[in-house]
Design a protein around this nucleic acid. Structure first.
Length: 478
RNA sequence: CGGGGCGUAGCGCAGCCCGGCUAGCGCGUCUGCUUUGGGAGCAGAAGGUCGGAGGUUCGAAUCCUCUCGCCCCGACCA
């Protein structure tokens, strides 16, 4: 049933896979590169979905569903888009036993088919903006899959909007980036850096791509969400036009944005430790687990424990709790199981506690004795609610400190090259692609983003030394 | 596609180099008894087309040929 988990320091990648499988988040499917999201992993994903969905709806978006299949010719319409996605397409050539007239692409993303529909739905400036999101699965033929981070089929939300002006589209793109940042920081307890992608890293077909970048436990970067200003690139090839108030035909300005099941991977790698998962209380499927401890030879003691557990449970209100009364497993076994699964808070209740009218609280984010405390039975509900909040904010604090401690500001290229192996490098960049390529070639690090927040001053490019206007985050990425 | 590793019980592995009795071990499962405050103990039991095909041989998990699949590391990527 259980194996000792490989410590992160020994082999981070092994640790990651073992945690996912042993905590029953996901399993490998019989098809290469595909995964099965198991109930525990899916419950976490549902909480992610819910929190994002609430935010989308609060900003006027509606959900809809578009087809899984896209005519090949659609993908080929936008030059950069084809070039970017062609290598990773899954293509259906046969259907119903016959060769198809035109091959169908299994959607890798839906700008094209949604753009096609928008061209039919939008006639007038009065139809704008169109603000639609879809929760869907998409397929990209990845060469090197990794559970949650990069699977051939993955689940995500993709928002697609159309606007009358570029200003509005930019505003929308940045509004979503704010939503993603807010979600990552306040729900997932992941500190992220919002910013702009470089030309070479942007979405194929976009004018500008924005991203939130996070640092994982092995100090590598992970793109946790993206929001794209598509300009008029898609509206021109799909003919999404409207008549403005001055009776002039104009092309729409469109955006697209997405967060995927990769977010689960980000949560695992930001917070997990050598005991397993550590889930942020706000997203954890189970926030609190109660582990009753009973002696088998005393029916009476057993009943007292059960009654106390029941009484406490009734006071817990909105807390997502679970009582683990599998007495066939020893208490130690159950403790370890819930630690592996990352449940933020555990309550232990045995006869000894009941005598003292108290219970034991154990915080998942502080392993061992330091995370344990005795709480009077009467105060359980109130303390649990407070402690979950504390755990949530402590997790964010810890992750932020870790990131900051591993973010460096090198001043010359030699130290930059060393430092970028060890974490994030914040450095000036002249904006020139040759400098970007040189870094990539010599260090494997890429430009993760040009942060939205910039200092007032100018500087010298870390690579070529010429005048640079923007501070840039370089790092090795997933 | 290049480099590496692995397919033997539900899971993890040994056996293979050097062919030979009935294919082992650990975990899990089932039964019984004892246990329960950090992954319980004892006793018993069930569980196998050795990834697939072909070949060599009196005899193949083991040797040869072909084949399928998966994992890890690189190039591509949310």
């Amino acid at each position: 049933m259980f194996d000792k988990i490989t410590p992160r320091s020994e082999d981070y990648s092994k640790w990651y896979t073992q945690v996912i499988r042993q905590a029953e988040m996901a399993d490998y499917a019989p098809v290469r590169g595909c995964m099965v999201v198991r109930p525990y992993g899916y419950a976490l994903w549902e909480n992610v979905k819910e929190q994002l969905d609430v935010r989308f709806k609060a900003t006027g978006h509606q959900n809809a569903a578009f087809p899984l299949f896209i005519p090949m010719s659609f993908i080929e319409k936008e030059a950069e888009h084809v070039e970017g996605f062609k290598p990773e397409l899954a293509v259906v050539t046969h259907g119903g036993g016959k060769k198809l007239e035109e091959p169908l692409v299994v959607r890798p993303t839906s700008e094209t088919i949604i753009g096609y529909m928008y061209s039919q739905w939008i006639q007038s400036y009065r139809d704008l903006p169109v603000l639609i999101n879809q929760w869907a699965n998409v397929v990209r033929w990845e060469l090197r899959p990794r559970l949650f981070l990069r699977t051939m089929e993955f689940f995500w939300q993709e928002g697609h909007t159309a606007h009358a002006t570029h200003e509005e589209a930019v505003e929308e793109t940045l509004r979503i980036l704010d939503i993603y940042t807010d979600f990552a920081v306040n729900e997932a307890a992941i500190p992220v850096i919002p910013g702009r992608k470089s030309e070479s890293e942007k979405f194929p077909g976009a004018l500008t791509s924005y991203t939130i970048e996070a640092m994982m436990g092995d100090k590598r970067a992970l793109q946790a969400g993206t929001s794209h200003d598509l300009g008029q690139n898609f509206s021109k090839v799909f003919d999404i036009q409207f008549l403005d108030a001055n009776q002039k035909q104009q092309h729409c300005w469109t955006t697209s944005w997405g967060v995927s099941t990769r977010m689960i991977g980000a949560i695992i790698m930001t917070h997990g430790d050598d005991q397993g998962l550590v889930l942020p209380p706000r997203l954890a499927p189970t926030q609190l687990v109660i582990v009753p401890i009973v002696p088998k030879n005393s029916e009476e003691a057993r009943q007292v424990v059960t009654q106390t557990v029941n009484a406490i449970s009734e006071t817990l209100g909105d807390i997502r709790y679970h009582v683990d009364d599998r007495y066939e497993y020893s208490p130690g076994w159950r403790f370890n199981e819930w630690e592996l699964k990352g449940v933020p808070l555990r309550i232990e209740i045995g006869p000894r506690d009941i005598e003292n009218e108290q219970v034991v609280f154990a915080r998942r984010d502080i392993p061992g004795k330091e995370g344990k405390s005795f709480i009077p039975i009467a105060d359980v509900a109130e303390t649990a609610t407070q402690m979950l909040d504390t755990i949530q904010s402590d997790m964010l604090k810890r992750a932020s400190e870790f990131r900051d401690a591993n973010t460096f500001e090198p001043t010359d290229y030699d130290s930059f090259k060393e430092i970028v192996e060890e974490g994030f490098a914040r450095a000036w960049w002249c904006g020139n692609e040759t400098c970007e390529d040189k870094v990539k070639e010599e260090t494997q690090a890429t430009i993760r983003c040009i942060p939205t927040e910039q200092p007032d001053s100018d500087g010298a490019c870390i690579v070529c030394g010429t005048k640079a206007e923007e501070i840039t985050i370089f790092a090795r990425a997933y």
